[in-house]
Design a binder for these strands. Sequence first.
RNA 1: GCCCUCAUCGUCUAGGGGUCUAGGACACCAGGUUUUCAUCCUGGCGGCAGGGGUUCGAAUCCCCUUGAGGGUACCA
Length: 488
Amino acid sequence: MDNIRLRFPPSPTGKIHIGNMRTALFNWLVAEQKGGELVLRIEDTDQARSSKEFEEIIIREMQWLGLDADEGVGLGGEYGPYRQTERLDIYQKYGEKLLESGSAYKCYCTQAELEEMRKKAAENDKMPRYDGSCRNLSQKEKEAYEAEGRDYVLRFKMPEEERTIVVDDIIRGKVEFKSSVLDDFIIFKSDGMATYNFAVVIDDALMKISHVIRGEDHLSNTPKQIMLYEALSFELPEFAHLPLILDENKAKLKKRSKDSVYVGEFREQGYLPEALFNFMALLGWSSGDEEEILSKEEIVARFALEDVNKSGAVFDREKLNWMNAKYIRAAELPRIVELSIPFLIESDLIDKDYAEENRDWLAKVIDEARTGVDYLAQIPTEAELFLTDIQFEDQAAAAEEFSGEDVKLVFESLKEKLYAKKELTPERVAEIFKELKNELDVGGRTIYHPTRLAITGKGSGPEMTSVISIFGADEVAKRLDSALQLAE
RNA sequence: GCCCUCAUCGUCUAGGGGUCUAGGACACCAGGUUUUCAUCCUGGCGGCAGGGGUUCGAAUCCCCUUGAGGGUACCA
């Protein structure tokens, strides 16, 4: 195979989560790096659980992360259609081929019969496998079943003789399976739809996929698929099975996991796509460099499937937070402002009109608030003190604080100096505090604490120099005056 | 149960026989900066699952045990 062709084939049975998206990312990285194509195929053979809504979410979240496919659902391409339910005629063609060549047969066993078989196998400490009852049904028996109106499935006939099937995996090396552990697995369900194992082989072959990069949970399916490749005389692609992403219990990340797992949740909480991108790339892979904040370009340049780890990786939300915080602080301010405003509106701190009219001031507030957050949904908490009227947790205690010795002197001097400066940058405010300390015979605490309380209503928060710079002289003077009034 | 995979600090990892008294990052702890919290800077704590081999020499190679995960569906 000369062309590098990758595929990401999610099944739209739920919102896309980090585990799947990381698979998409690694496929995308290889395609990007080697100038190959990435195909987005939708595996909706489970017709009961698949839905269009989930398909749309998959596409939207991939776009958000910048993982654009070159071909596939929503994009078209010469190997379509790209939705498996729309490829049924193709699967049927190959199913018939196998039926004719004797590599497949109709099986009329009922679910209850199969259940019985599994139970027996478990009792005998054997891997549950289909016993092949319907392998050599006589014409008469078949007709009898048909007459009964029994549904049938199509099973692939495993070769009789014992042999070893080797999966040559880029990440794991050669993995061997004895054919005796494989049974006559189903390739067509009784609802007439192809099963995953069958459809995936047909599609990968027909779509000329060169590298199948997927989660380790598919490793055990691979020998079955290899048998199908052989039976259909298809050329084998390269395989690479990625380590799984684990939840806090070290189990495969899934819908039931406690922590957030959906890509959408991270987007909604104000994680930046480039931060998630960077973080996911480091789950199971490392550049070998000690620097971990890597741009998309750096990751594309350095990525190699050969360097992917074999063991599962726990999704560490704390580290993602740290990384996201770094990206938030490094990002262009206008973009952060844009992304933060919806959160402020949502928190009822501001409304749309306010956001438009006070954009510059809001930018200052958000610029300050961003230094204290891990993700943008936390912006309102940090910005609140700038956007609401002052509120004391304990008004009586505050009043007492303000009535302290020298407080009035400090406040009045501060006001005077604030008005003496033209533009209140944090640096100038810092100078003012220095002067205050030198000129007034009071301790540092007497200057800072009451001041902070009077202006923000709280005992801690952003640096006073920033707070005063953002509020400006008028607002600060007003708050200092009210504090003094409270003291009386 | 059976099959497959995996195994370095709590977590993500570097390491592919000597340069390892095992390096980095997150988290944690302490100190410094900010007379606050956070940011930031500095330092610290902390690991090769266990047992056998191979070798002059194993985190690195082999075997066993243990542990973890995945698969075992008319889910994908």
